[in-house]
Amino acid sequence: MSHSERWQELFGPTVDGPEMRLASASDDSGAGAGGTGNLKYSKGPWTSASGTAGDLRTRAETSRSVLGRGHEGVEAGAAGLSSVTALKGVLTSWEERLQAVRDECEQLKGTLRTVAKEMGETETAVKTSLKGVHVPGEGDEKR
């Protein structure tokens, strides 16, 4: 049975069954799936993503506020024009969209911050649990 190139990239040769590899793992250096490489975690990307979600939340709220102020007095100044009703509908629609973005970003910000905290705590717990494990090195004598 033949598999696509993409399938083989992701899962490796199918002679002995599929082999999953991490996208961040090296293919040829011996590091990676089944190799001797090290997979390292950094909470930096999670914390950064949380901050970006927070920034987007703030910008969405600012935009919603500015949009509302920009439409103040339109109804009074254009009374009787049919376009005022359409304009009011568009304003309401955009205010609702921006509010939904703001609310979703607020939730996402908290979730991403929680992931960063949990991953950092997990990493610390794993490091602590492995401190007592002896790993043979080059300095060990062979007996």
Score class of each variant (00 low, 15 high):
residue 42 S to Q: 06
residue 67 L to N: 02
residue 50 S to E: 08
residue 63 S to N: 10
residue 29 S to T: 05
residue 70 G to I: 01
residue 54 G to H: 03
residue 40 K to C: 04
residue 59 R to T: 07
residue 36 T to G: 15
residue 46 W to D: 09
residue 75 E to W: 08
residue 51 G to M: 11
residue 67 L to Q: 07
residue 68 G to P: 04
residue 74 V to S: 04
residue 26 S to R: 03
residue 68 G to L: 01
residue 36 T to E: 06
residue 58 T to M: 08
residue 73 G to H: 06
residue 70 G to T: 00
residue 47 T to R: 09
residue 31 A to Y: 07
residue 75 E to I: 11
residue 39 L to T: 11
residue 72 E to R: 12
residue 38 N to L: 11
residue 39 L to D: 06
residue 72 E to W: 07
residue 46 W to F: 14
residue 38 N to D: 08
residue 35 G to I: 00
residue 71 H to W: 11
residue 53 A to M: 10
residue 49 A to V: 02
residue 25 A to G: 09
residue 31 A to D: 05
residue 66 V to Y: 05
residue 50 S to I: 04
residue 64 R to T: 09
residue 28 D to F: 14
residue 66 V to Q: 11
residue 51 G to Q: 15
residue 35 G to W: 03
residue 41 Y to R: 14
residue 40 K to F: 01
residue 27 D to L: 15
residue 59 R to I: 02
residue 28 D to E: 13
residue 53 A to E: 07
residue 38 N to E: 10
residue 25 A to Y: 02
residue 59 R to V: 02
residue 26 S to N: 08
residue 43 K to E: 14
residue 57 R to I: 02
residue 43 K to I: 11
residue 32 G to K: 08
residue 43 K to A: 13
residue 42 S to T: 07
residue 50 S to K: 05
residue 52 T to D: 12
residue 30 G to D: 00
residue 30 G to F: 00
residue 31 A to S: 06
residue 23 A to F: 15
residue 37 G to S: 02
residue 63 S to Q: 12
residue 72 E to H: 07
residue 53 A to L: 10
residue 68 G to W: 04
residue 33 A to Y: 12
residue 60 A to W: 05
residue 29 S to R: 01
residue 38 N to Q: 13
residue 47 T to Q: 12
residue 29 S to N: 06
residue 38 N to G: 04
residue 57 R to T: 03
residue 75 E to K: 14
residue 46 W to H: 09
residue 41 Y to K: 07
residue 48 S to A: 14
residue 24 S to F: 14
residue 48 S to Y: 11
residue 66 V to R: 15
residue 35 G to H: 03
residue 46 W to V: 02
residue 25 A to R: 05
residue 48 S to W: 11
residue 26 S to K: 08
residue 49 A to M: 15
residue 41 Y to N: 10
residue 36 T to V: 09
residue 30 G to W: 03
residue 29 S to P: 04
residue 29 S to F: 04
residue 60 A to S: 03
residue 46 W to L: 13
residue 68 G to K: 04
residue 65 S to W: 08
